[in-house]
Design a protein around this nucleic acid. Sequence first.
DNA 1: TCCCAGCCTTGATCTGGATCAATGCAGCCT
DNA 2: AGGCTGCATTGATCCAGATCAAGGCTGGGA
Lengths: 261, 261
Amino acid sequence: MSHGGLQPFVSPSHQADNRLLSPRVALRETPWLTAVADKTLDVLAGHAVLHRIPAGSMLFEQAETPTFAQILVAGSVELLGVRGNDETRIERVYPIDMLLPAAVLTRQPYLLRARVLDEAHLLMIQAEAFLHAVAQDHALCLAVLACQAVQFRRQVKQAKNVRLRSAEERVGCYLLRLHEGAPPGVPARLPLNKRQIAAELGMTRETFSRTLGAIARRGLRIDGDIVIVDDPVAAHTGFSLDPLIDGAEPIQPLATKGTEG
Amino acid sequence: MSHGGLQPFVSPSHQADNRLLSPRVALRETPWLTAVADKTLDVLAGHAVLHRIPAGSMLFEQAETPTFAQILVAGSVELLGVRGNDETRIERVYPIDMLLPAAVLTRQPYLLRARVLDEAHLLMIQAEAFLHAVAQDHALCLAVLACQAVQFRRQVKQAKNVRLRSAEERVGCYLLRLHEGAPPGVPARLPLNKRQIAAELGMTRETFSRTLGAIARRGLRIDGDIVIVDDPVAAHTGFSLDPLIDGAEPIQPLATKGTEG
DNA sequence: TCCCAGCCTTGATCTGGATCAATGCAGCCT
DNA sequence: AGGCTGCATTGATCCAGATCAAGGCTGGGA
């Protein structure tokens, strides 16, 4: 299972409970840290705790200065831009990923509020210890760089999706993508409730709902929470997936090709 | 002069012509590379060329795979999301900064098109050599990480600005920011023509123009290209600058505080 | 001097999507 | 049963900002 874009949310209880008992184990099992030496992970683990945070909790507030580097091990988290009483969702974070490493790295205040959507398992590493480790361990630095680069690209894709496509196209492409992603024969299911999908796609629930009605014309339909493509041809004509928008953006190690020096 | 957000565009001819003759010198004079060893810069310089590219040129196209890591030394560049004939401006890049390091680092295709706005002095380093150097040199890796983190935060600020504020507020805050940024006594000037400011603020030129008319009510006005604050109180009541949106985001080295290990 | 190309402004109109407001429809608790 | 809470649909209306369409102003070139 990749951790790119549209994960079904895994029930956290079965995923993490037994295996991720300690920070040390959590670190070792983080795929994009595989290249990092045990010694460094030991150090990090020494300054870390593993917390389970219930849905609805606020992890940090806009303008706070980060005291921990946080790695989301299970569950999910939303990042919101806040202004007075208005909130706008900027990003949804899926495991295994860091929460706003940019703020931690630059020692600047968070630009966003973080709230738990599905019970989160969080690996919290003291910010200073984390920074020190990044400054000491080249492999760790490379891993964080990869993580940060991918987050940047996800942002750009999101911006393109919202600004270059109409609401209807976003919905169509989203469903189509789910459908393509599902194993052949198995019908695709909505991985989230509709309210959250709407937020993901940058529109209100009402607009999402209406749009779902409208795209029936294009051979795309929802029954309960499963996606039905009545007319594949019409669907693909109306909505063309673009890898530069819809493609997953998984965190990969920054490997050097060819001969090593 | 910081390289955060709202630079006046410096005439490239006087800034760079004599000093930045060679890639080697350009690298050494890049502020956020100061911590990188000469040896590494030598290697990079060995795989680099310094180019001067006229306004209007396309540097790379969406979906291309990066062959160079590009550092903008002087001039300016816009990054555009493209879909058919539609373009949407995602970002404007000011020197000294990298152009989409995320694509180079992840070896993925560019998500955006890059076009020169003001004649650009570009340091172009072969992608593989650059990646290799990042993989070899910890200090360089840290520098690139800092650069990438800042770019991420700029994106987030841009998103907040557009989604949390009305067109009128964006214009008001932009002008106010210019005004605050200017040395006391000296009137602030528009650093760009209005068309480009409009794009920067995520609106059409027409809307920008109308909005300029509208905010006269709030004690803010443009005369020619200088910003006049007729009524500071009204202006600050109507438009409150938020450091989490309007603050500059300069590229700084990722220093470790306190004792070194 | 005329002409033309770039900018900017101004007006009229359109519209995608938000907002406000009801209603339906589960599941769940007591 | 009832009543509550949270989600989803559906309809009516609104509005910020885009779009389309004319001008106006400035500077430059022959």
